[in-house]
Design a binder for these strands. Structure first.
Lengths: 338, 338
DNA sequence: ATGAAAGCGCTAACAC
DNA sequence: GTGTTAGCGCTTTCAT
């Protein structure tokens, strides 16, 4: 069973190769009747244009790249969304990985870029804020979209989850429950979201005439262990917090584990909130109150944006970006203070 | 910055296109002196062969496909391993998805196969046991490796995690703790691992002169919810089990959540064990005792096997397969019975 | 509105 | 050992 090519479809439909090509690419100048015939024949033959031939002959490759730094729940959902969008537009998703801590990141990036033939790249934090990565991509004129980036960058659109507003909303939830001593475990500095979430946190506090206490704001690394470590020093305080807002779910899990270890009851003795709403957030005990970040949708939007501008030469500046918003998911880990 | 092609290198090195091609593919029949020159020129020009041209002209595409049915922790680790192997051999990983529940799976698969140009496909359960999927792939002569498949299939090698032995080891751990009434929550029927794990479970019991009680063997769906539901009926039994062995971590999480809800203490009142050792297994409370499955390594082996046989025409039967083994990870969720 | 011809950059099958 | 000649399956001109 040799694979079916464009000429097979053309012959069977009684038209030329070019007409089939036009139909497959949704180009104008084809009679509707002919278009329908071609479409029908293509379907009958299970015809799918070959990516390699297309990218060799034309300007676009019908492939999008997804640049992975490390595997996190965060990245998984993003990939899922990107994949969904790709399939919807006949695109393929190529996963690439890069180690930001590599000895010679510049060389690694250049090698990556050289071997790459994609119409665009989807970048997540912290990769999307790495100057070497961006510089290499810019030099190679590879379009990219940055999801939740730290900085403005004229060459690429950004997808924004509305971190500040989300953190503000979560803090308001805690405040509304009656908490006054609320701790925040931030993400690492190289994630832009960290600063923006702190901002939202402070903003909600300010609305109540409060200010974030220095000793109640800890820096974590977005890992389980860092959440566990941060909470230890928080609970050792003279006036420990009655609620802890962790900047991501993994750190919130760390907080809960440590609290359990110390014999504290959640949410009776201590309220815990997370951020992201990863799948396991509803599976731990008690189920975690968190902010659902529309990662899949954001990544899908990123992919769509890339696909839309593919083939247009990439020279012209892309649209400015798009904002999404998070959703507060209240579960069992938050309650009024003791 | 026009991209540099093989002819540019050939001209600059004073040889023919074909010689450059031979050098780039590490083929024999090139004088070492010439080889060095070509290599040097290629490096100077930052030449990297174009994947699309290669796959269009030749037998190999330098791309591997990873067929995803749904996103699960299981799949994530596998993808990570596959990606690692790809990078090591200059390959790219293309993620494809297929919906096994689609109305016309045959048509979907044929369309997928047609548009695909990969040197091989990595298949996970339950996709790797779907007859339509395998038939389509066989018809198209696309090589694939099946990870943890149910059935023997001569056209493809298999990667085996040693399910039976692993389930046996876990059961022995529980038995060693003193448990006698041990329940098993199986995976769904369409996962071959389910049967094999039941086998290992029964085997360990038999060694102690015991037999699995019918009412203590439940069927789950590898989801959190199914674990939670299964445990409810288990605990409603006249003689409830003192330990529950869930066939994957997600179901074990369900068991733990339900137990917490019912006020049972883990592991004091009930021991719980899982299977897979997903990242969150160590983050729940108490940390879950489970079997670490070397998913990433298995997938990497699958990728390597595919890469090794790529270009060899695929017609010849591949090696029989490879076996891995799981590792018992004892954490806080298992203890002697009350 | 449609078609014919000419490549895209590479590898395969043969020369020599 | 090395070069020559054809394509791979499509998109791009440019005709008609």
């Amino acid at each position: 069973m040799a694979s079916v090519t464009i000429t097979d479809v053309a012959r069977r439909a009684g038209v030329s190769m070019k007409t089939v090509s036009r139909v497959m690419n949704a180009e104008p100048h084809v009679r509707d009747e002919v278009r329908q015939t071609v479409l029908r024949v293509a379907r009958e033959l299970h015809y799918r244009p070959k990516v390699s031939a297309r990218s060799l002959a034309g300007a676009r490759s019908y492939q999008l790249g997804f640049l992975l730094h490390q595997v996190s729940p965060y990245a998984i959902y993003a990939q899922l969304g990107a994949l969904r969008a790709c399939r919807a537009f006949g695109y393929h998703l190529v996963v690439e990985s890069i180690d930001l801590a590599a000895l010679d990141l510049t060389a690694d990036m250049e090698a990556l870029v050289n071997g790459l033939s994609v119409d665009g790249l989807i970048l997540l934090p912290p990769v999307c804020d790495n100057q070497i990565v961006l510089k290499t991509l810019d030099a190679a004129a590879i379009p990219y979209v940055r999801i939740s980036p730290a900085t403005v960058h004229e060459r690429s659109p950004r997808i924004d989850p509305g971190d500040a507003a989300a953190a503000c909303a979560m803090t308001e939830h805690l405040l509304g429950l009656g908490h006054r001593r609320i701790a925040l475990i931030q993400g690492p500095r190289n994630h832009a979201a960290s600063a923006r979430r702190l901002e939202g946190f402070a903003q909600a506090l300010a609305a109540q005439g409060l200010r974030p206490a220095v000793e109640l704001v800890q820096e974590g690394l977005f890992t389980f262990e860092s959440g566990r470590d941060a909470v230890a020093s928080l609970l050792a305080l003279k006036h420990p917090p009655t609620a802890i807002f962790a900047s991501n779910d993994l750190m919130a899990f760390g907080v809960m584990a440590k609290a359990h270890e110390l014999g504290l009851r959640i949410p009776g003795d201590l309220s815990v909130a997370g951020f992201d709403d990863i799948a396991t957030a509803s599976m731990v005990w008690p189920p975690l109150t968190t902010m659902r970040q529309p990662m899949a949708d954001m990544a899908a939007a990123a992919a769509e944006s890339l696909i839309a501008t593919a083939g247009k030469g990439g020279a012209e500046p892309l649209e400015g970006g798009r904002s999404f918003s998070c959703e507060l998911v209240i579960r069992g880990s938050t309650a009024p203070p003791p």
